[in-house]
């Protein structure tokens, strides 16, 4: 029966599909891989300590920036959207500082209980 038509054909694109624009995507990928590789380099060549942890955290923030800005496209959204995502997360930094110093205080007070 001729009436048995494939409906998807009605919506088929007329004209050419544009060429893929993947340059930025692959560039971001190589940046992420390179940053991870640098992290491993530091993990195996440097002794553990505050400096090494600081390097890890800085590299992690860079990786997070590239994922959120390029892959999640946040860099290309409106300023209002960018700030409504970034600002609440910035407040979490305070929670981190407060609770980690609380942990150190707890440790000190237990250790020095009898001193």
């Amino acid at each position: 029966m001729a009436a048995h038509s494939d409906h998807s054909n009605e919506f088929q694109q007329t004209g050419e599909i544009p060429k893929a624009q993947t340059k930025v995507i692959w560039k971001t990928f190589f940046i992420l891989v390179a940053l991870t590789a640098v992290e491993f380099l530091f993990a195996f060549t440097m002794d553990a300590g505050t400096l090494r942890n600081a390097i890890f955290i800085i590299l992690t923030v860079f990786k997070a920036f590239y994922i959120v800005a390029e892959f999640m496209h946040l860099k290309h959204e409106t300023k209002a959207l960018i700030w409504s995502i970034i600002l609440p997360m910035a407040l979490v930094m305070w929670l981190m500082v407060a609770l980690i110093s609380e942990g150190s205080y707890y440790f000190d007070s237990i250790r020095n209980y009898f001193n």
């Binding site: 997360m89 979490v92 929670l95 981190m96 609770l99 980690i100 110093s101 609380e102 942990g103 150190s104 707890y106 440790f107 237990i110």
Partner: peptide, 14 residues
């Protein structure tokens, strides 16, 4: 973030 911060807190209290 809460999970990871609790990890930090636990680690610093050990």
């Amino acid at each position: 973030a809460a999970f990871l911060i609790v990890y930090g807190l636990s680690r610093h209290s050990h």
